[in-house]
């Protein structure tokens, strides 16, 4: 039993880090890489606070062994706003989708993956997509508002610019 080297990218940055086999991705992100935006709420996969992107999919980092991410592209909440705030981040703040904030990174990461697959979700689809994340503060309403607003902004942004003549 010994540490092994995990080679992957985290928020676009190549990472080489020695990991214990029994350390979860959440452990490594928070303790070794100091990416503490990823939160641990229940540690059993039921609250969604620890959601990150692994190769573009929203996954629970508390139930993922770090070494299982060999070669993977990992994205955390800190990676969403490298140059400017992501529309989801802005919308969660502006719509009141974040109160105590502890579940917020998880909600945003899950919403982000959801909008990639479905850029124009209905309210019911948003509800379904977020049904593995628990928020104790907001009653979810303002979170749905935020996702709707961000989705609209993202669709408008991604409209191809007119071709120059």
């Amino acid at each position: 039993m010994s540490k092994q080297i995990l080679r992957c990218t985290v928020n676009g940055r190549a990472v080489e880090i020695a990991c214990e086999p029994w350390h979860t991705l959440a452990n490594v992100l928070r303790n070794d890489l100091n990416l503490t935006g990823t939160k641990i709420g229940c540690d059993m996969g039921t609250c969604g606070c620890c959601t990150v992107h692994i190769d573009g999919k929203a996954k629970l980092s508390c139930l993922t062994l770090a070494l299982e991410c060999q070669g993977a592209k990992i994205g955390t909440i800190e990676g969403l706003n490298e140059y400017e705030m992501h529309p989801l981040q802005k919308a969660f703040a502006e719509c009141g989708g974040s109160q105590c904030g502890y579940c917020t990174p998880g909600f945003i990461m899950k919403s982000c993956a959801m909008l990639k697959e479905n850029p124009e979700p209905t309210r019911e689809e948003i509800k379904a997509g977020l049904s593995g994340n628990l928020c104790r503060c907001t009653g979810f309403m303002k979170i749905y508002d935020a996702v709707e607003r961000a989705a609209t902004e993202m669709r408008e942004k991604s409209v191809p610019a007119p071709v120059k003549a």
Binding site: G45, T46, G48, T51, K57, A58, K59, L60, L63, T64, K110, A128, G129, L130, S131, G132, N133
Partner: peptide, 9 residues
């Protein structure tokens, strides 16, 4: 089954 996040893994 479970939740969307758990179904992803």
């Amino acid at each position: 089954i479970a939740s969307p996040l758990l179904r992803e893994s």
